[in-house]
Computed example of a mutant assay.
Amino acid sequence: MTARPNADSPHADPPHAPVDGPLYAHGIVRRGFRPRPGLVGAGGGAVLVVPAGPLAALVSVPCGPGVWGGDGFPQASGAAGMSRAEAAAQAAADAHRRVVDEAAATVCVLPLRIGTVHRDEAQVRRVLTERADLYERLLTRLDGRLEWGVKAYADDAAGAWAAGDGAGAVTDGAGEPVDKLARAAHDALADVSECSRVHHRWDACPHGVLPGAAASCATSAYWTSPISGAPYPHGRNLLDSAYLVHREAAGVFAETVGGLVARCPELHIELTGPWAPYSFADPDELPDLTG
């Protein structure tokens, strides 16, 4: 007789009634992870675990089936409907990030594209099975590592920044252009991280590891400040980078940021994180990590 798994075991899959309707997919983890009871996902539904082999997907059941469109966000029409759709998209993006980052606090998570919706559990399992090798390689590469974000701004309150050829650009006390300080800051942080990615203004969003509809990353609280020519509250944005850092090296990375803040008063430097490795979960750009 085959023994049944103990429901109290940390490696037992949390029980739930099979779901036939659409499921919003948040991320991929190794089988055995159990989300916090009461954790709410996109659309206000409870977060469930759908396992397949050694992997599992974190999904939620969108409330109000039938109103979710192909892009993973509630549909609406008309002028008044547009504002409701935008609010719903913002709420979905926030919930997506909340679920992924809460899981990433304890296990390695591959974040999926915002707005990834599957028809049912069978489709989720099929995708997990078909791409199991890729997902396991990504989980192995990223295990024990988190993403930190660093943004650097130059103070142009006095209007010293000039567009075009850079004439009249903001300089530090020695007369060096501040953008060189930002590049030096990035180099210093790259030296104490395992991988880095500079976000450019044409980066719409991080790529998901599951095929899905286009993400509405402008609604995500994390992806609101790509590099652009527009002024920011703190000045001109010179650096918007993501760094992959091992959990054990987080202190060293934070100290490096603190040292840059002290040495570069001409820059306003912001550190955010730790996050799940959003910028490093692209299957087409596997990070080349050692060890």
Rank of each mutant, 00 (worst) to 15 (best):
A167N: 08
T129N: 06
R197E: 04
H186C: 08
G44F: 07
A185R: 10
W68R: 03
V170W: 02
V49P: 01
V198P: 01
A91Y: 08
V29E: 00
G144F: 07
A167G: 11
A169R: 12
A158M: 11
R126H: 15
A80H: 03
A132S: 15
A87F: 06
E285V: 10
L146G: 03
P206S: 00
E194D: 15
D284H: 13
A57G: 13
V50G: 03
A12S: 13
V99T: 13
C264Y: 12
R137E: 10
A154S: 14
D187F: 05
G45W: 08
A154Y: 03
V170Q: 03
A250S: 14
D172A: 04
V127H: 15
E130M: 09
S220I: 08
P277A: 14
T2Q: 10
A254T: 11
H26K: 06
D203Y: 00
A221V: 07
P74L: 07
P54M: 12
P111M: 06
E194T: 07
V19Y: 12
G81I: 04
N237M: 08
P211Y: 05
S193K: 04
R247C: 11
W223L: 01
A182Y: 02
A230I: 05
P10F: 05
E102D: 15
E147K: 06
D156H: 11
A25S: 14
G159C: 07
L139V: 07
R137Y: 00
K180I: 05
T256K: 13
H200N: 03
V19E: 12
L139Y: 05
G72L: 14
G235R: 04
S83C: 02
A42L: 10
G168A: 10
A242Y: 07
R145W: 00
P65I: 09
L189C: 10
P287E: 11
H246W: 03
A105N: 06
S216L: 14
G72C: 12
G66T: 11
R30N: 10
L110M: 05
A104F: 00
T290E: 14
G229A: 13
V107M: 00
T272M: 11
A185T: 15
Y135V: 07
P226Q: 10
S225H: 09
R125T: 13
A215R: 01
E270S: 12
D143M: 01
L239T: 00
P287R: 13
S279N: 08
A215G: 15
E285C: 09
V127T: 15
L238A: 01
G258S: 14
A154Q: 02
H199Y: 09
S77N: 05
Q123N: 11
A89H: 07
A184F: 04
A103F: 03
L48R: 04
P54T: 14
A276S: 11
A89S: 08
V192C: 10
S193V: 07
G208D: 02
R4P: 01
M1W: 08
R119N: 07
V47A: 04
G144M: 09
N6G: 08
L289Q: 03
C205Q: 00
D13N: 13
A254S: 12
R201T: 09
W68C: 00
G168C: 06
C108W: 00
R145C: 05
V29H: 01
P65A: 13
V170D: 00
L142D: 01
